[in-house]
Design a protein around this nucleic acid. Structure first.
Length: 270
DNA sequence: AAAACTACCTGAGTGC
DNA sequence: TGCACTCAGGTAGTTT
């Protein structure tokens, strides 16, 4: 499931192939994504690609006339291929480039999107009210502590809310809370500033380390060259229900929180 | 304002 | 082998 490290890995992977190329062809085999693929993208051929950036889990591809917003949803991936590579069942979109390569968008569950955001992409409705990047100077202990004040919501729900901080999905939320030794159901407003400081640091460490591993591959995620990410081997609680805690050997528990599976150690996390 | 919940989608896995 | 069913999850949008 693409979370921030997977999107960052994808961005870094495709950027060298896209920057300073010209779009020679734009192919949409199936426009039915979360929202229909934007019709403005039909004008991409002959345009130059200026840069590829990431904001939250959105990939921003900057062309001369504006920016495309690409989201991988839950099962999306982008690969660099040769144009004559056999299409796979859920390859929905392709962007052919002047360097002879092709960018392929694959998304079995079709929860992703390809939208047009014009010349001021950060003002697009999907981007303008997002919280700070977790790996960036705006995500401070004071900020996170203030966001928690008076909030009765479980801390896991709060850190997964993109208006608080972007990029922390279900996997990394469980992992960060384990490392910070905070119970996922703990009321956000009841946590001390010291533990919030610890949590802010563990969120950053987990995400940064996962990026060095190329992200986490559970099922679908592949890098731009088709290879998996290796952070799965580093997961301490996610997906380990009834397995021993790596710290105290208690049985890892799974609960449902905000409709999502949540893993934690009942002894280490209070 | 905040919290809780829904919808969107397909493949994998399970039980009969 | 096949059918019916559940589960997984990012996040915008709706309801309480």
């Amino acid at each position: 499931m693409p979370e921030l490290p997977e999107v960052e890995t994808t961005c870094r992977g495709i950027r060298p192939y896209l920057n300073r190329t010209i779009v020679t062809d734009w192919i949409v085999r199936d426009p039915r994504l979360r929202w229909p693929v934007a019709k403005e993208l039909d004008f991409l051929p002959t345009q130059s690609i200026l840069d590829v950036q990431r904001r939250a889990k959105y990939i921003l591809i900057h062309f001369n006339s504006g920016t495309a917003l690409v989201h991988l949803g839950m099962s999306g991936s982008l690969r660099i291929t040769d144009p004559d590579t056999q299409w796979k069942k859920h390859d929905h979109i392709a962007l052919t480039l002047s360097n002879g390569r092709q960018l392929r968008y694959h998304d079995p569950r079709r929860f992703g999107c390809w939208l047009w955001a014009g010349k001021q992409p950060l003002e697009h409705p999907l981007l303008h009210s997002l919280g700070p990047e977790p790996i960036g100077e705006d995500f401070t202990t004071d900020y996170l502590y203030q966001r928690c004040r008076q909030r009765k919501t479980p801390i896991k729900t709060l850190i997964m809310d993109a208006s608080t901080v972007v990029g922390v999905g279900n996997i990394y939320a469980s992992e960060s809370l384990f490392l910070a030794r905070i119970h996922p159901q703990r009321e956000a407003g009841s946590i001390s500033r010291q533990r919030i400081d610890k949590l802010k640091n563990t969120i950053q460490q987990v995400l940064e380390y996962s990026i060095t591993q190329g992200g986490t591959t559970l099922r679908d995620f592949v890098r731009e060259d088709g290879s998996p990410g290796y952070f799965k081997q580093q997961l301490r609680v996610y997906g380990r229900e009834n397995e021993p805690c790596l710290r105290c050997e208690s049985s890892i528990q799974r609960i449902i929180l905000g409709q999502r599976s949540t893993f934690f150690c009942p002894r280490c996390q209070s």
